[in-house]
Design a protein around this nucleic acid. Structure first.
Length: 415
DNA sequence: CGAGAGGTCATAC
DNA sequence: CTAACGGTATGACCTCTCG
């Protein structure tokens, strides 16, 4: 029983969505027609290119490049800051439109999804016809273009949508694998990242076809189970299903940030950690979850990373509890090496049980009530309304870092 | 010997 | 003083410990 799977991918998602929003708000210049990027803060040492326009691409600008390098390539480059609330809305609108065609839509990231077309072919016609209709409706109604890949499973649909950009529909059926997939470089294959690519190249495996012709036992020997995964991908084999609930269960929540200078004092680190714990705690409580495990992560000025985690016997959710655990871990972990980057993450999450089931101490009740009040105020008046006393008058801005600095706690978690 | 904890690494967007 | 991976999330796998 053969399936029909679509992979839909927004072209230059952040940049397209930002451009559309600006046009809707009366701006006359379309960012998509000039050399432009969505990027981090150029003043921060962590700024990188998140998305680029096609004219920007012509200057050799690449995603994830530092802003400094990007401006070297194109001094007249226009750089706008990311606005995740705008992108989340655009994403939701697209997913809703696609769900009109099939209930089986798996959100893969903010700008990508899989759609199982098998059961609805009778309603909407041939896969190619339907894909062009979806593409046109998204452009007419939402203002941006997408790529659509069509095949009989997810890996081939995903590779198909990547074959030619932008605004294209491609098929990559099993009988087309040799012709369309095998000539590609191994690094173009999904799940072949930098490290895997280097290992494959070392053994003369340059193309996806080379990978497919390599002995599976050899691949397992050098890459463990990952070797078998990409070997199957090279043959276009993938039995995973389109799972519309895949990202409804959050497994961990974290926040990390690169600090504009190297931290050498414990007190400085503590302020950043408190700030990170606040945003993590807030998102944890917003998700109505509690956590068993807390982890802290340090990147040193020499780019070494170290981390430490601890599982507690009970779950926590208040900012204070998270902060106390985080600092305990920090004190064990830190060896006075200057710190470039700090992160806090909670995992092994549990859904919040009804309050009566907890044996809470009076103190904890008070703290949780305080957290609730702060969360509510932020919800109503925005996140700048309240700062922890220890954060005021310091270099640390409350809620610093990451995706969490506007309305949305994470790209996947709220889509 | 197996389970679970803690730690590291790789990958994606 | 080059260069580097920014931030968030997931999964595989390795080592160690405990019983």
């Amino acid at each position: 029983m053969s399936r029909i799977i679509f992979h839909i991918d927004v072209n230059s998602a952040f940049l397209s969505w930002d451009a559309v929003d600006r046009l809707q708000h009366g701006e006359t210049i379309d960012l998509r027609n000039i050399p432009s990027i969505v990027g981090g803060d150029p003043k921060k040492r962590s700024g990188i290119v998140l998305a680029k326009s096609i004219p920007a691409k012509k200057f050799g600008i690449k995603t994830a490049q530092t802003l400094v390098d990007a401006f070297k390539l194109c001094p007249q480059l226009v750089c706008v800051s990311p606005r995740y609330n705008v992108y989340t809305k655009a994403s939701k609108a697209m997913m809703a439109l696609l769900r009109e065609y099939s209930p089986d839509v798996e959100i893969f990231s903010i700008d990508e999804c899989f759609l199982d077309y098998t059961t609805v072919e009778k309603l909407f016609g041939s896969p190619l016809e339907a894909a062009y209709v979806m593409q046109k409706r998204i452009e007419d109604e939402l203002g941006f273009t997408v790529n659509i890949g069509i095949s009989t499973n997810k890996i081939l649909a995903k590779m198909a949508s990547d074959l030619e950009k932008p605004n294209k529909v491609h098929t990559l059926y099993p009988h087309e694998v040799q012709e369309k997939l095998w000539p590609l470089h191994v690094s173009d294959l999904f799940m072949v990242g930098r490290s895997t690519e280097a290992k494959l190249i070392k053994y003369g495996i340059d193309t996806v076809g080379d990978l497919a012709q390599t002995d599976l036992n050899f691949l397992k020997y050098i890459l463990k189970s990952h070797g078998e995964l990409i070997y199957n991908f090279a043959w276009g084999r993938d039995v995973s299903i389109v799972n519309d609930e895949k990202y409804s269960l959050v497994k961990s929540i974290g926040n990390s940030t690169t600090i504009p200078y190297d931290i050498t004092e414990r007190e400085d680190a503590a302020r950043y950690i408190l700030s990170l714990c606040e945003s993590v705690g807030m998102r944890l409580r917003a998700a109505e979850m509690r956590a068993y495990v807390i982890a802290i992560h340090i990147k040193t000025n020499g780019f070494d990373t170290i981390q430490k985690q601890h599982k507690m016997l009970y779950t926590i959710s208040s900012t204070n509890d998270i902060y106390e655990e985080a600092m305990r871990l920090f004190d064990v972990l830190w060896n006075q090496v200057p710190i470039r980057h700090l992160g806090v993450r909670v995992s092994q999450l549990q859904e919040e049980l009804p309050r009566q089931l907890y044996l809470l101490k009076q103190e904890d009740e008070k703290i949780e009530t305080l957290d609730q009040t702060i969360d509510d105020l932020r919800e109503r008046f925005g996140k700048e309304i309240i700062s922890r006393a220890s954060l005021i008058q310091t270099k640390v801005k409350s809620m610093s870092g990451g995706v969490g600095d506007d309305d949305y706690p994470g790209m996947r978690s709220l889509i």
